[in-house]
Amino acid sequence: MASILSLNNITKSYGKIQALKGVSFDVPQGSVFGILGPNGSGKTTLLGVVMDVLKPNGGNFRWFGEEPSDKQRRKIGTLLETPNFYHYLSGERNLQIAAAIKQKPPEDVDRVVKLVRLYERRQSKFQTYSLGMKQRLAIASCLLGNPSVLVFDEPTNGLDPSGIAEIRELIIELSKEGKTIILASHLLAEVEKVCTHVSILQQGTLIASGSVHSVLSNEEWLELGSANPENLRTLLNQFPGIKKTEESGDYLLVFFESSPDASALNQFCFEHGVVLSHLQLRKKSLEAEFIALTHNVSS
């Protein structure tokens, strides 16, 4: 699969602080690529470098397989850090400026303000917008000209739960259209729902990168409950493929050497006189995986 963005050994320092330490990865075409990391890990710095607002100290990058240029940036919709607009102008006039810089038709402004539900307020001054509206206007600006690549840095900042869900749906819809989306966020649950690929940064170092399945361990286990937990525990010793069991409150967590088969275990218990009152397949969350990965690096 062709790379939309290739980073090669990017380093960036602010005085003595090294914000990026030789970061390299590729963003495949058509992927939803999550850049994860705690605050201060270098996510925004990395995006600032590839959008030419920050100068790297070393390394290089390519967009669409070519040397970076302003012409390429016009083909990318980018929301970096905060919505940046002229406070004294209306949302509509701000978007007209953005459209003119991107060399997109001004008629496209109406389409994008409708898409982010700002049509009614398009003629209000930017300084009168709420934080969520400012964020939606910034997303509208990204969508001008229907670009094939979108870069979102914390796109759900300032949005309420329904706004967050809307943006999530929008990202999924855009992804279905074949667009490549680069998404920097510390909201791991959000990333988990939409991303096909992830890179994890910590203190400027890339600690993992690749498809979601390859980066995350994908570990699954079963959570069991029974009126007689002692009998259940004894019985489980006879079930093949169990790696270990752990108690968690009223439940028993059962880990397997391979993928767990919930129905086979349920049938086995029932046939041996133990009725399960609770049976649930659990999966390690991205958050847990992220904490495990970043903890390993920092320790």
Binding site: D70, N84, F85, H87, I101, Q103, S141
Partner: peptide, 21 residues
Amino acid sequence: TNEFSFRTHRQNIIDGWSRNR
């Protein structure tokens, strides 16, 4: 200074102007 305060100097570059322009 409006450009710097509103950070639109960055946005103009992000949207597709060269620094030189």
